[in-house]
Design a protein around this nucleic acid. Structure first.
Lengths: 209, 209
DNA sequence: ACTTGTGAACTGTTTCACAGCA
DNA sequence: TGCTGTGAAACAGTTCACAAGT
């Protein structure tokens, strides 16, 4: 059995993305002047069960007021405190159509995700910018990543180059990878990978219908 | 084994996307001339447990041969038979950066996903094409969707228009929606939504590290 | 010997139901 | 009364361990 290191009080894996959703909604509620919100209202806004929401929130502590609901600002701050890591710079590998769309994705600005540099092998792209992000050659990547202290990388290169680029990423100190390539990439222990596979998302939708 | 046998034997929800992954890998194995594959080998190729793979496959029936593994072609056909819906045409709403990247996503061609039309409100885009897909105005959408018989829609419009466009999609007969907007969209019962929320994917990676 | 197929155990997640409180 | 917070129950998914087949 492997040793699993948990430094923080453990929260169920699936409450994490839900909590990020709550944070976003609480931000909207705050902007529209709401002071309190009930689990029932959050359920309507998210499509989840109210009991689910109470359970999720109770993982982090008790801030709700019976009869009134949760104070929006305090709840948002509580969740942010427990769930956010510090916003590290992110680097992007591959400035094809998908990479470009990611670089320009408007929500990242408002959600503390900062893409600090991009890398591509295409000499015509190197030296330019995309969505305000400077594009470097792959040869420069190691140096740039070290300088930025980036630990998160987005893999948006073509399928055939995916494993090779992921190996490079690991070598230069990247510890978390969002992989958009529709292949399983192997990484050493201690490196976290999240796969976003558009084809499988589509197919799953077809199967769910 | 119990004697209760429903006419549509139900498959656990999470085996569906995994099975789609198996189908893709089996296709690759077939192309490289492999005749048999063991659950152990599939485990190495996917990063899953071998017992998980045997369990998944056993949901669909028994095709493996002890000592030899699974016959690649027969297993692929079995999974496709059970897991694929017929490849309906898909329509795309919103031809911004993300919509464009989706329209041009190269894996869709090889994976039977056919985006048949795109819609946008920008008059400069209407009448043109993106990745070979014709762009229509939103006013034309109802007619085009009806004509194509499309039941799957991709929502890649800006956040502020998301619910409005989803309502339109439902009204014109779309029954499955891939939603890239970072908001919860409400749909009537019987409509399936899959959300791909890039911000939450990122944040979750940060939290997992 | 080696690999499938599968009950059984285990682990994790969601939902229920209600005590307790303002 | 109307809400939170939570133990308990129900449910779902994964892993184990081994019988059976070739």
């Amino acid at each position: 059995m492997l040793m699993i290191m948990v430094s923080q009080p453990k929260v169920p894996e699936r409450t994490v993305p839900r909590s990020l959703l709550y944070i976003r909604i609480l931000g909207d509620l705050l902007n529209t002047g709401h002071e309190f919100v009930s689990s029932r209202e959050l359920a309507d806004l998210t499509g989840l069960q109210d009991s689910q929401i109470r359970k999720d929130i109770s993982n982090f502590g008790a801030v709700g007021k019976p009869r009134v609901g949760y104070p929006v600002r305090a709840l948002k701050e509580l969740l942010e405190d427990r769930v956010y890591s510090k916003a590290d710079p992110v680097v992007l590998f591959g400035v094809g159509h998908l990479g470009k769309a990611i670089a320009r994705y408007p929500e990242f600005q408002s959600d503390r995700i900062h893409i600090a540099a991009a890398f591509d092998t295409d000499a015509r792209k190197v030296g330019g910018t995309v969505g305000g992000i400077r594009v470097y050659s792959l040869a420069e990547a190691k140096r740039v990543v070290r300088r930025l202290g980036a630990e998160i990388g987005i893999n948006a290169v073509p399928k055939a180059a995916a494993q090779e680029v992921v190996d490079l990423m690991v070598e230069m100190g990247i510890r978390g990878i969002i992989n958009f390539s529709p292949v399983h990439v192997a990484v050493p222990a201690g490196i976290t990978v999240r796969n976003i596979d558009l084809t499988i998302e589509f197919m799953t939708l077809l199967c769910d219908m």
